[in-house]
Structure formats: structure tokens, C-alpha cells
Computed example of a mutant assay.
Amino acid sequence: MWQSVGLTLLVIVATLVCALLFMMFGWYVVWQLFLSKFKFLRELVGDASTPQAETQPAEPKSEHSASATTRNRPRTARQRVAFSETSS
């Protein structure tokens, strides 16, 4: 009788441990692949490490948008004049 109760408790505890390990592994995989990309989730969890994208120096938005437009298509004379006036 006590053997069957002990075995039942062992099975229940082993099942709970396996389920907990599976959940922890799943959370880790989802965190590494997706959730760690969001800054507000990192702040909620208290993760001090930063992803690789934030460690690289970012160029200012005005320079980035200006360089992106020059690469994509040539500017018209009106756009060149307007851009030079705002740069000065």
C-alpha cells in the first residue's frame, strides 16, 4: 500500500518537474529568438544586456534619411535647393 502511494507521489513530482523544465526551455527559446528584441520587455524583465543592434553606433535620423533618398533616386533641382536651404 505505501509503495503504491510513494510511487504515485514520485510520478506526480516527476511530471511536474518535467513540465516545469519544458516551460523554462520554451521560454528561453522564445526569449532568445523573438522577445529580447523588444526594449520594453527587456526593461520589464530587468535584462541588463543589450542586443547587437543597439551596441552598434547609429547614425542620426536626418543623415540616414538624406543618404537613403540619394541612394534610391536622383533629386530634382527643387529638392536640391530645398535641402541646401535646410542644411544651412
Rank of each mutant, 00 (worst) to 15 (best):
M1K: 02
W2K: 03
Q3G: 15
Q3L: 15
S4W: 03
V5Y: 14
G6K: 14
G6N: 12
G6F: 10
T8F: 06
L9A: 10
L9F: 11
V13Q: 06
V13M: 06
V13K: 06
A14S: 06
A14N: 00
T15I: 03
T15C: 08
C18D: 10
M23N: 04
F25R: 13
F25M: 12
G26N: 05
V29K: 14
L33W: 07
F34N: 00
L35S: 02
S36F: 03
K37F: 02
K39W: 14
K39F: 13
F40G: 02
L44I: 05
G46C: 01
S49C: 10
T50H: 14
T50P: 02
T50Q: 15
P51L: 04
P51T: 12
P57D: 02
P57N: 03
A58T: 08
E59Q: 09
P60M: 05
K61M: 13
S62D: 10
S62N: 07
E63W: 05
H64D: 06
S65G: 00
A66R: 14
S67C: 07
A68S: 09
A68F: 03
N72L: 15
T76I: 00
A77W: 09
R78K: 08
R78A: 07
R80K: 11
A82T: 11
F83Q: 15
S84C: 07
E85S: 11
T86E: 13
